[in-house]
Design a protein around this nucleic acid. Structure first.
Lengths: 226, 226
DNA sequence: TGGCAAGCGGACGACATCGTCCACTTGACC
DNA sequence: GGTCAAGTGGACGATGTCGTCCGCTTGCCA
């Protein structure tokens, strides 16, 4: 059992390595916020005060770096779903879920890009965690509809539609919080049961499993360029 | 007046040059649709069957090429505004305007990217044409509100919010027409007067003048990278 | 049909980013 | 303090894109 006898720290990293890792993640968030997630890796390294080799050693691909940099945000999303499900008022839970995710997209620049980047590749793996998240969300929707708050013709894929369109808005207008809040308010209003006037067009065939709401780290590679 | 005595064609181009120009524009639309507006210029040239020099001679910058490639779509947007204003039913006009622009964004791949690319630079020029477009839109809004169809707290900037968020959606999910239509339907419903329940957050300070609805070709350079 | 300017295409140098390699440094344990 | 593997940083070759330059071709007009 002496296989790692000389290694300190709970994650098997030396103290300086752990410090550098944290620095890189911080720098990645800053740089991605400033220049988008396509910013040169060298820029991130310089900002972190480390060499490129150090960066590449910890995060072999840009995707790994992006994922790690925004892991906390992804977890917050996942937690929001759990909390929404725990709320005794299902509509309140639903509303808070949408608002929480959108607020994250709005506040943490770079996260929106990471959010869409983590989005459907057709051949995305469907892990246990993701399927559970999907089931949880469906439960939330059904409850909110049963309570007469969420419109009956709301389709789960509409959630993805809302998040992705909001994502696009904050990407186009970073910093315009008013616009973001306005869109969220409009969308939430139109999801309420009493907003239903006339039939909606058919919902999308989007699977919710691919929504980056389940922080399981099993996402495939992101599409490198639009 | 013999200054251009040897030049044929109404646009001062030789026949072969004019043909090549058309080919390049066609290729640009195809390539931009496939690979986004950041696709290499050489790819466009190859697809058009011309050399890069030919491409650069007609369109010195990528921005010029993008603008020319989607000029027709921009004009359609501008025309839609005129038609909306001419509609005796202002809500009908408003609805058609939103649907027309969104349909363009949905159908013509690459156009969404061009659309946001043509969007606010802070130091954007405000031409006569743009100001007129803004006034026309304001008139349309006021009429629709006066008719009791458009909600009273609708703010002109909400139009930009709708278009930009839709733009983001179709960019994230190219080809998912159902999702696009669904979003448009939700947004239009929430803009109706009878959808107003409770107060909305404050509107954005976005100026509509920068919306690429006025095809005047005076747009500044696009932000090269997100 | 001949002259020639407009038009053409591809080669080319400049530049940026990627990801690896390797000689040097440092922290952890004895 | 000594040892040494983990860790480090920057140089480097590979790759891809940009935009220009220049010698050849071609459409237009007389």
């Amino acid at each position: 059992m002496g296989e790692s006898s000389r290694i300190a720290g709970q994650d098997g990293l030396r103290a300086d390595a752990r410090r550098n890792r944290r620095r890189v993640l911080w720098a990645a968030r800053v740089v991605f916020a400033e220049h988008g997630i396509d910013a040169p890796m060298a820029t991130v390294a310089r900002r972190a005060g480390v060499g490129v080799a150090t960066l590449y050693r910890r995060f072999p691909t840009r995707d790994a770096l992006v994922r790690a940099a925004f892991a906390h945000q992804m977890e917050t999303c996942a937690r929001a779903l759990t909390e929404a499900l725990a709320d005794p008022d299902p509509w309140q839970g639903f509303q808070r879920l949408v608002e929480t995710v959108c607020e994250l997209q709005r506040e943490e620049r770079g996260f929106p890009a990471a959010f869409v980047a983590a989005f459907p590749d057709s051949r995305r793996e469907h892990s246990r965690v993701r399927e559970q998240a999907e089931r949880d969300f469906m439960t939330l929707v059904r409850r909110a509809q049963a309570a007469g708050a969420l419109r009956a013709d709301f389709h789960p894929s509409d959630f993805a539609v809302a998040l992705l369109s909001h994502c696009g808005l904050v990407t186009a207008l970073p910093g315009d919080h008013a616009a973001s809040r306005r869109l969220v308010a409009y969308l939430l209003q139109s999801f309420r049961a009493e907003a239903a006037h006339g039939a909606l067009p058919a919902p999308s065939a989007l699977s919710l499993r691919s929504l980056p709401l389940a922080a399981d780290g099993s996402q495939g590679q992101r599409p490198s360029r639009a």
